[in-house]
């Protein structure tokens, strides 16, 4: 613990408190989870051991972003899960084919071209696909197989060139397959009836070159998040009800278009309102 200096409290969950802290030596900002060891009668709790394992897996780039892995809790919190619990499923015999297919739709083009080395860009591509799917209520690139998957992407983004995608020449499957040249289709046509800010953000993610995709941190500063409808507080989110009651209607957002030039604090929800909610920041 001496290696960290606590900067503040991020949130509190059923199993512990999460602090924002700084690693003194490297200056890196980290989240520290303090687990309440109420009864230590069985040593280090399995929950803690498994969380550490999950974090190591995330670090190794093993998580798989797609709508099926996104959960919204009853309190409106978004959780990233990984249902690639292959052990459980494969022991039942058959592989779940639909599961495999669904993953392909969010696969970044460099992976489709056989990239062996990849980075967080593959997740940002998946974020773009998921964002587009949320806007459109249907998947953007629903390829039936790997070839068709590439066709779907190329049809929308246009045939890649060395200008639009300099790294393509280094990919293993480049040259193994050529597609008929076609120009890009404007995303406004792919995702119709969508506010221009949303289209603009979508363009930032759906970029051939992995390095040029907008980072998650930068994306949060995009005007999309500061224009109407503004990000909702957890308590405002419509939550499906189990008992067949119609979901509570979301309040009509005030027609605000806050300027991005203002300091961020002016635009975000008062942190005190978030206390007890913001467990996954």
């Amino acid at each position: 613990m001496e290696q960290y200096s606590i900067l503040g409290r991020i949130g509190e969950g059923a199993h512990g408190i999460v602090f924002k802290a700084k690693h003194v030596e490297t200056g890196e900002t980290v989240a520290l989870k303090k687990v309440a060891l109420r009864k230590l009668e069985d040593g280090i709790p399995n929950q803690a051991l498994r969380e550490i394992k999950a974090l190591q897996e995330i670090e190794d780039n093993q998580c798989d972003l797609k709508p099926a892995n996104l959960l919204i809790s009853s309190s409106g919190h978004l959780k990233i899960a990984d249902f690639g619990l292959a052990r459980l499923f494969s022991e039942q015999g058959e592989r779940l084919y639909s599961h495999q297919v669904a993953t392909r739709w969010y696969r970044a083009p460099e992976l489709l071209y056989g990239a062996r080395k990849y980075d967080e860009g593959v997740d940002l591509w998946a974020v773009g696909c998921i964002f587009g799917e949320l806007l459109n209520s249907s998947p953007l690139f629903p390829g039936e197989n790997d070839i068709e998957q590439l066709c779907c992407v190329l049809r929308v983004l246009g045939t890649p060139t060395q200008d639009t995608w300099p790294e393509i020449v280094e990919l293993p499957d480049y040259n193994k397959i050529t597609f008929k040249e076609n120009p890009a289709i404007p995303l406004e046509e792919i995702v119709p009836d969508t506010p221009p800010q949303a289209i603009s953000l979508l363009y930032k993610f759906l970029v051939y070159s992995s390095k040029q995709r907008c980072s998650a941190r930068r994306a949060l500063l995009h005007p999309y998040f500061f224009s109407s409808p503004l990000p909702a507080h957890h308590s405002e989110l419509p939550i499906p009800h189990l008992g067949g009651h119609p979901p509570r209607q979301r309040l009509q957002p005030p027609s605000l278009d806050l300027s991005v030039d203002l300091p961020l604090q002016n635009n975000v929800v008062d942190p005190t309102l978030l206390q007890g909610h913001a467990t996954c920041l």
């Binding site: 093993q62 798989d64 690639g84 619990l85 292959a86 052990r87 499923f89 599961h99």
Partner: peptide, 20 residues
Amino acid sequence: CLSCTGWDAVEDVLVNAARG
């Protein structure tokens, strides 16, 4: 395992496992 990295080629999964 293969399906937990759905889009990985077999080779990648093997290499990852070996590297791990």
